[in-house]
C-alpha cells in the first residue's frame, strides 16, 4: 500500500505543479507572472523526467568500482542528461523572455497586458 503510494505520488505532485504553471501561463494578465508560470511549468517537467529515472536500490550514475558495472546498481543516466539539456533550454527561454519584458516595459511603462495594449492604442 505504502509502496503503491510511493510509486505514484511523485507523478501527482508533478501534475499539480504542471497545472499551476500552465494556469499561470494562460490565465495571468501580468506578463511577468506569465513568465514565472512558464518557469514553474518547465520545472515540473524536469521533475517528471528525473523521478522517472529513479530505480529502487540504485545509486547515482557515477561508476563506483565497488559496485561494478551492473545496470541494476545505478540510476538511469539518460533522463538526467535530457534534463540538463532541458534546463539549459529553459534558462535560455527565460533569458529571452526577460529581455522581451524589458523592452515592453521600456516602451509602455507597464507589464500588464491590458494596459500595454491600451498604451499602444493611445500612442498610435
Amino acid at each position: 500500500m505504502f509502496e503503491e503510494f510511493l510509486g505514484r505520488y511523485p507523478y501527482f505532485m508533478t501534475v499539480i505543479l504542471l497545472a499551476i504553471g500552465l494556469y499561470g501561463m494562460v490565465a495571468k494578465r501580468n506578463l511577468l507572472k506569465k513568465a514565472i508560470g512558464m518557469s514553474i511549468f518547465q520545472s515540473a517537467i524536469f521533475l517528471f523526467f528525473i523521478q522517472g529515472g529513479a530505480k529502487w536500490g540504485a545509486t547515482v550514475p557515477v561508476i563506483d568500482p565497488q559496485r561494478g558495472m551492473d545496470p541494476a546498481q545505478y540510476m538511469n543516466p539518460l533522463p538526467h542528461v535530457l534534463i540538463l539539456t532541458a534546463i539549459v533550454v529553459s534558462v535560455a527561454t527565460t533569458g529571452v523572455s526577460l529581455a522581451l519584458l524589458l523592452t515592453i516595459y521600456q516602451r509602455y511603462r507597464t507589464l500588464d497586458e491590458k494596459q500595454v495594449l491600451e498604451e499602444a492604442r493611445r500612442k498610435a
Binding site: G7, Q51, G52, G53, K55, W56, N76, L78
Partner: peptide
C-alpha cells in the same frame, strides 16, 4: 511505478 527497476526506460537503452 517510480523506481521500478523493470520499467522500460531502465531496461532498454540505459
Amino acid at each position: 511505478d517510480r523506481g521500478d527497476p523493470e520499467a522500460p526506460a531502465s531496461m532498454h537503452v540505459s
